[in-house]
């Protein structure tokens, strides 16, 4: 970095090298090490304006502003009331449906078992009748 660039940066970004563009800081540090007196003078000049700028302090937020800001903020999400009773109702309906399905399945199973037995009996009868003919 040459002197001209060092001055340009001080002129634009002020007397604190930490506020200069990151990409320029290493080169600036080298120049500061090589020419400490020149660098000190240049930065001091820029720092004077920095100090003036820092003398202007903004007014803090008023309590009224903070209240207004908070009043408009998102509120915690609450589950709608209907969800409170819908959940148990849904659960109950589910259980009832499961019971009904169980009963239906049981009845069908029983009917099938009964049908199978009667068919088996008929087959046995046929076999027996066949046997009796052969005998």
């Amino acid at each position: 970095m040459n002197r001209e660039r060092f001055e340009e940066l001080a002129q634009a970004y002020g007397g604190q090298v930490a506020r200069w563009p990151e990409s320029e800081r290493d080169a600036a540090a080298l120049l500061m090490a090589a020419e400490p007196e020149y660098a000190r003078r240049t930065l001091a000049e820029a720092e004077q304006l920095d100090a003036f700028l820092d003398a202007w302090r903004p007014k803090p937020a008023s309590a009224a502003l903070m209240d207004t800001v908070l009043a408009a903020a998102p509120k915690p999400r609450r589950e709608p009331r209907w969800r409170g009773w819908l959940m148990p109702a849904g659960l109950g309906a589910g259980l009832a449906a499961a019971c009904a399905a169980g009963v239906l399945f049981g009845v069908q199973l029983e009917q099938r078992a009964t049908g199978a037995n009667s068919a088996g009996a008929a087959v046995a009868e046929l076999d027996l009748s066949g046997l009796s003919e052969d005998v």
Binding site: K59, P74, R77
Partner: peptide, 23 residues
């Protein structure tokens, strides 16, 4: 957290950003 309406997050975001925006 602010999106979920978390009151602590709302206050924290206000504390973090209001002075910057006001300034």
């Amino acid at each position: 957290r602010v999106a979920k309406g978390d009151p602590a997050a709302v206050r924290a975001l206000m504390a973090r950003k209001l002075p910057r925006i006001l300034s």
